[in-house]
Design a protein around this nucleic acid. Structure first.
Length: 295
DNA sequence: AGGTTGACCTGGACGC
DNA sequence: TGCGTCCAGGTCAACC
């Protein structure tokens, strides 16, 4: 629908939104793919970790011991985690060995030439045999770094939103008494969905964030399943267009917000019905919705 | 047991 | 300029 009079609307003080990091599923996938394209097949010559304890979920000594000498087979996304599948020199082990990176709220994973100055809040540096370095930078230190060793490999806390069947998706919400938005954010059922895409998927499905998950009808669940997968895939596709320099230059700034229909649009007119978008607090997060389009 | 709330951190925007 | 307040893409432990 074309909004003929859009230029007449008062622009709310559009909080200049530093859209530099967006570590939800589409962003994490973009980063993982970008790092994979740059370093797959390379060997890690040495590893260094900062003294800050917060981002270290495994002991730094264990991470150094595991990473040094290992070859990076693959870098991929699982939920909101970035998984480095490692090949180790003397592998007489049956278990998979992986380095797991979670970006938290402000984490960044960079591939830099060694002469590029270390950014403030750098907490990990892996030097590769090409001479380049993988660097983990995280001002807020909500990110997490760990080693995973298990027979099955890291599978994440929940189900993958992109591939889950409708039947399994519906089962996640059937008996739950929590608001649907809180249920979408619960990583142990569905992993990868964060605050932006929860709001955006609920808007596209026409469902209010505060509705009890268990109260959704079959039709509403179908709309939600479809909307969620669609919005995540669309975001990945858009992120993908800036993959070429994202890890070097955080070039994704301001990109996804072009597609936001409710997230951080408080007070601005709904793109469908012109009703001002509302903002409420739910599950400790700011939540945005249209009171007319979502029921 | 499932659901809810605050704590964990830094830094940028904004108001006075 | 400076200082206080609010806010941020995420989890968890500790409650009820």
């Amino acid at each position: 629908m074309i909004l003929q009079s859009s230029i007449h609307w008062t622009r709310f003080p559009a909080r200049a939104h530093n859209g530099m990091h967006m570590p939800e599923l589409p962003e994490v996938e973009t980063v993982a793919n970008g790092v994979h394209a740059r370093i797959a097949g390379e060997r890690i010559v040495s590893a260094w970790f900062s003294e800050k304890k917060e981002p270290m979920k495994s002991p730094p000594a264990l991470m150094v011991q595991t990473l040094e000498g290992a070859r990076v087979k693959q870098v991929r996304r699982v939920g909101k985690h970035i998984v480095f599948d490692l090949d180790r020199p003397a592998k007489n082990e049956i278990t998979a060995v992986q380095w797991i990176v979670h970006l938290g709220m402000s984490g960044r994973l960079l591939v830099n030439a060694p002469d590029v100055e270390l950014a403030p809040h750098t907490h990990a540096v892996l030097r590769l045999d090409s001479g380049r370095e993988v660097r983990f930078v995280d001002p807020r230190r909500f990110g997490r770094l760990s080693i995973e060793r298990s027979a099955t490999g890291f599978t994440g806390p929940g189900s993958e939103p992109l591939t889950i069947t409708f039947a399994d998706f519906a089962d996640l919400f059937r008996k739950r008494n929590t608001p649907i938005k809180a249920a979408l954010l619960d990583q142990s059922s569905l992993h990868g969905v964060g605050n932006i895409y929860a709001d955006e998927a609920l808007f596209r499905a026409g469902i209010r964030p505060r509705r009890k998950a268990g109260s959704l009808t079959q039709v509403e669940l179908q709309r939600l399943h479809k909307s969620l997968q669609k919005v995540l895939k669309e975001a990945i596709k858009l992120g993908g267009s800036s993959v070429s320099d994202y890890v070097d230059a955080d070039g994704a700034a301001g990109f996804f917000q072009l597609k936001h229909r409710v997230y951080q649009r408080t007070g601005e007119p709904c793109l469908v019905c012109n009703t001002p978008i509302r903002r409420i607090a739910l599950a400790g997060r700011s939540t945005h919705y249209c009171s007319k389009c979502q029921n």
